[in-house]
């Protein structure tokens, strides 16, 4: 069995072979791992990797799993599944560069109105989350088509706060 697993920007292939009950052999690149494991509960797996015991804490999160080992968290996803879902989502004409908050937030002020010409990097909306202000910038040079929010609005990641038509 082979998985292609991505952490951050790095996708590595993991070859796995069953090696008895609750035992596997895994090969990642040049490295070989003899692993025996116990699924302690839904979130905790105890591993003995090449003779060394370690706990991994796992939680499913959307496209992948968060795995915490020795206080460090890794977001691991299946690169093959990810590619499939990406091709599905990406329709023609979709634009990944949008004015959207990185997290749930409240709009503090809108610095532009319809028809304004904006430059890439120019602050167009200021939002506040957990009492901290952050400004959202125009992703490219262009013209403001529509302002979709007003001061005090609660906004979520993915909400397009300002439509900007890209300058050709």
């Amino acid at each position: 069995m082979e998985y292609r697993l991505k952490i951050k920007e790095e996708t590595l292939s993991v070859e796995v072979e069953n090696d008895g009950e609750e035992k596997i052999k895994a090969v990642i690149g040049e490295k070989e791992f003899d692993v025996s494991y116990t699924a302690v509960n839904d979130h905790r797996i105890h591993l003995v990797v090449n003779g060394q015991g370690v706990n991994a804490y796992v939680s499913d999160q959307g496209d992948g799993k968060i795995i915490a080992i020795k206080g460090k968290s890794y977001f691991v996803c299946d690169a093959d599944l990810l590619e499939q879902s990406k091709t599905r989502k990406k329709g023609p004409g979709s634009n990944p560069q949008e004015v959207t908050p990185p997290m749930p937030a409240v709009v503090i002020s809108v610095a532009v109105v319809e028809g304004d010409v904006v430059e890439k990097g120019q602050a167009v909306v200021i939002v506040s989350a957990m009492k901290m202000e952050t400004s959202l910038a125009a992703p490219f040079n262009g013209t403001v088509q529509k302002v979709n929010v007003a001061e005090g609005d609660k906004v979520m990641p993915g909400d397009i706060l300002v439509d900007i038509e890209k300058e050709e």
């Binding site: 998985y3 596997i24 591993l47 990797v49 370690v54 799993k65 460090k72 691991v76």
Partner: peptide, 19 residues
């Protein structure tokens, strides 16, 4: 972040899938 246990995280991912 230091990625020193990334291999273990990948292995844990596979085991979690297997379970």
């Amino acid at each position: 972040p230091d990625m020193s246990d990334a291999d273990l995280a990948r292995i844990a991912f596979v085991i979690d899938e297997m379970c």
